[in-house]
Amino acid sequence: MTRLHIDTLPHAHATPGKASPELVLLHGWGMHGQVWGEFATRLSELATVHVIDLPGHGHSGHTDPFDLASMAEAVQHALPQPAIWMGWSLGGMVAQYVALHHPDSVLGLGLIASSPCFTTREDWPNAMKPQVLSQFTDELASDAEATLHRFLALQAMGSPSARTQVVQLKQALSSRPLAHQDTLTGGLHILRDADLRHRLHQITCPVELIYGERDALVPAATARWLAETLPHARLHLLAQSAHAPFLTHPEVCLDAARQLILQSDSQ
């Protein structure tokens, strides 16, 4: 069993005798739970928050084989159920997988700049070119940290506050050990190969979609497609945001979490 590092932030306003909402936060490729920073603390005003280091990232052990299914199953088994799941980028794909394969575990889904298919296909033009990920894969072998920093810059590209975001992301990244080399390569392979589009309509829980119009990795067209495909989705498409809306627009992300909690209470 993969050893996962989980930071649990107690619900700051829990009502005695009443079960607290449970909320799971999943980070993106190459990062770890510290990337959520102040946003996770603010979420704890709404729920008990479980901040995960995905397998092979931060303080969590590597899983072998390293693929989307193994990663999602490791996280699902380690967490309280049911819960609201919020995932950023690759973390959002993990959350989608869990919602599809363990629907009773997911009361609501928050997808932040994530995709069911990160690279282009013949019928999916609005995504990253596979060559972009191949280049990152080639560069990992020579200098993993520099490659991660380049990826962070790509995530912030297009945002009016890009320089500030890169500084924030780099500071968060340096606060825990770099991801395992096999994890980084495996994560890029997941981003290149995984495709959940054809089953996504089966996700029937409430979904909040938080995306940036200026995102260089997950285009706005993907966000619109998700809003049309998911049966119970609400889209927040932010004109001044790139790939990290929880940094640039934390209030929108907090409102999305609040809505998911309210909807889960009414179920």
Rank of each mutant, 00 (worst) to 15 (best):
R197N: 03
H180W: 09
R150H: 10
A78R: 13
R163P: 00
S44K: 09
T164N: 13
E213S: 08
P82N: 09
L188Q: 05
E38H: 13
L254I: 14
G187P: 05
H180F: 09
G56P: 04
H27L: 07
L46A: 12
A256T: 08
H180C: 09
Q267G: 13
W85L: 02
A244S: 15
P177L: 05
L140D: 10
S89L: 00
D104V: 02
L200R: 00
H13P: 01
L140P: 13
M157N: 13
M1W: 11
E251K: 12
P16D: 13
M93W: 02
L169P: 07
G92F: 07
V207Y: 04
D64K: 11
L152T: 04
L200T: 02
D7C: 10
R224F: 00
T183H: 03
P250H: 14
H249Q: 15
A95E: 03
P206V: 02
W225C: 01
Q155I: 04
I84Y: 06
Q81T: 15
M86A: 14
I84C: 12
M157I: 09
A194C: 08
T63G: 06
S264Q: 12
A256H: 09
G110P: 04
S60W: 07
P116D: 04
A257L: 06
R42S: 11
L169F: 08
L9Y: 15
A14E: 11
L247R: 14
P21W: 02
L169Y: 05
K129P: 14
R192F: 04
A12R: 15
L79H: 12
A156G: 02
D64N: 14
G187A: 00
V166I: 15
S89E: 13
D182L: 01
V252E: 10
L191M: 09
C205G: 06
D143C: 10
A233H: 05
E122I: 07
F118N: 06
E145W: 12
H13E: 13
